[in-house]
């Protein structure tokens, strides 16, 4: 018998007696107020992230300009910002190790936790969201869902090869509980509230 069949066989033989139905999961009332943007910002702040409103139409990135100070390599996965590293031309994921700042757009945000979701198509190269030193995340204020339960009703999880919720930057407190940002991944995560451009096509 193959290991597969042996395992499945044992699971059938050893199944505990009794009826164990799958419960219906009710829809829970959101624990956040109506101002989803404010709730999102407050919670992301507690998780070590920052939120900035977009600057004027002429320069929407004005409010996060300081985040680019001293950055030499900027990789942008969004049409709103032009970087100097072409993500479309990356040969292997590790080539992004020298990126100082990456600019990406979140598919949606979650007010309950301050999380943002990316899939492989948002990141173009997945590793950029971890190898970059700092992450700037564009989020349309209209793309914030109330809670984690609502997030998991979105179709993205079943469709994407890779989907990830980021809630603040990479963090560790493995040494005496001292909180440190930038354990392995990005040292900071800043969300810029910027509406999606309506797709022309």
């Amino acid at each position: 018998m193959s290991p597969r069949d042996a395992i499945l066989e044992r699971l059938r033989t050893n199944r505990p007696a009794g009826d164990f139905p799958l419960p219906e999961v009710p829809t829970f009332a959101p624990l956040v107020g109506d101002d989803l943007v404010a709730e999102f910002a407050e919670r992301l702040g507690k998780m070590g992230g920052r939120v900035e409103r977009a600057g004027p139409a002429s320069d929407p990135f004005a409010t996060v300009r300081s985040r680019f100070d001293g950055a030499r390599v900027i990789a942008s996965a969004v049409p709103e910002f032009v970087g100097n590293r072409d993500l479309g031309a990356v040969r292997k994921p590790g080539d992004l190790a020298d990126v100082d700042v990456a600019v990406v757009r979140a598919r949606f945000g979650v007010a309950e936790t301050g999380s943002v979701l990316f899939t492989e198509s948002d990141l173009i190269v997945n590793s950029v969201a971890y190898l970059a030193q700092h992450l700037i995340v564009l989020l349309d204020p209209g793309d914030i869902v109330v809670n984690i339960q609502a997030a998991y009703k979105r179709p993205d999880f079943a469709q994407a090869a890779y989907a990830v919720l980021h809630t603040g930057p990479s963090a560790t407190a493995d040494i005496e509980g001292v909180l440190i940002h930038g354990a392995q991944g990005v040292r900071s995560l800043t969300v810029l509230l910027l509406q999606r451009k309506k797709q022309a096509a």
Binding site: G48, I148, Y152, K153, A163, S170
Partner: peptide, 28 residues
């Protein structure tokens, strides 16, 4: 997938008292 809506809310809060881990990653 919808069951993650239950477990993700419980896991990090139980583990560390934090509403969610910094990264919740779905490899498909």
């Amino acid at each position: 997938v919808e069951h993650l809506g239950v477990f993700i809310r419980l896991l990090s809060r139980s583990a560390l008292g934090s509403p969610i881990t910094q990264y919740t990653s779905h490899f498909r």
